[in-house]
């Protein structure tokens, strides 16, 4: 037999309850999307942890590079005026 190729890797995202985002929780190996979905169900929702599952081929995900961290994320750090606490509103103005 020829050298066996491993089934591709899929990343698994689960919505744990209505109103929440899907959250990454791990991966499975599967030959196709249906199998990936079912394996995700059998592996990651054994204790009713989910109401919705996404599976995505791992190699379809583009990730930011750690060494780009400074240029990507630090410029946001000094934009403090985007946060509500930046503004002083007198108590008399009521809840805002």
């Amino acid at each position: 037999m020829t050298e066996e190729k491993e089934w591709p890797l899929w990343e698994v995202f689960i919505r744990s309850k209505a109103g929440l985002d899907h959250k990454h929780c791990g991966s499975v190996h599967a030959s196709d999307a249906e199998m990936a979905m079912e394996s995700a169900r059998d592996v990651y929702t054994r204790r009713s942890e989910g109401i919705s599952i996404w599976v995505v081929p791992s190699n379809a995900i583009t990730a930011s590079k750690p060494e780009d961290k400074e240029s990507l994320f630090e410029p946001a750090d000094d934009k403090i005026y985007r946060h509500p606490t930046f503004y002083d509103i007198p108590q008399g103005a009521g809840k805002m």
């Binding site: 089934w7 499975v28 190996h29 599967a30 199998m35 079912e38 394996s39 059998d42 592996v43 054994r46």
Partner: peptide
């Protein structure tokens, strides 16, 4: 054949 399949059958 794989651990995932084992999980499925045991379920």
């Amino acid at each position: 054949p794989t651990i995932e399949m084992e999980m499925a059958l045991m379920n």
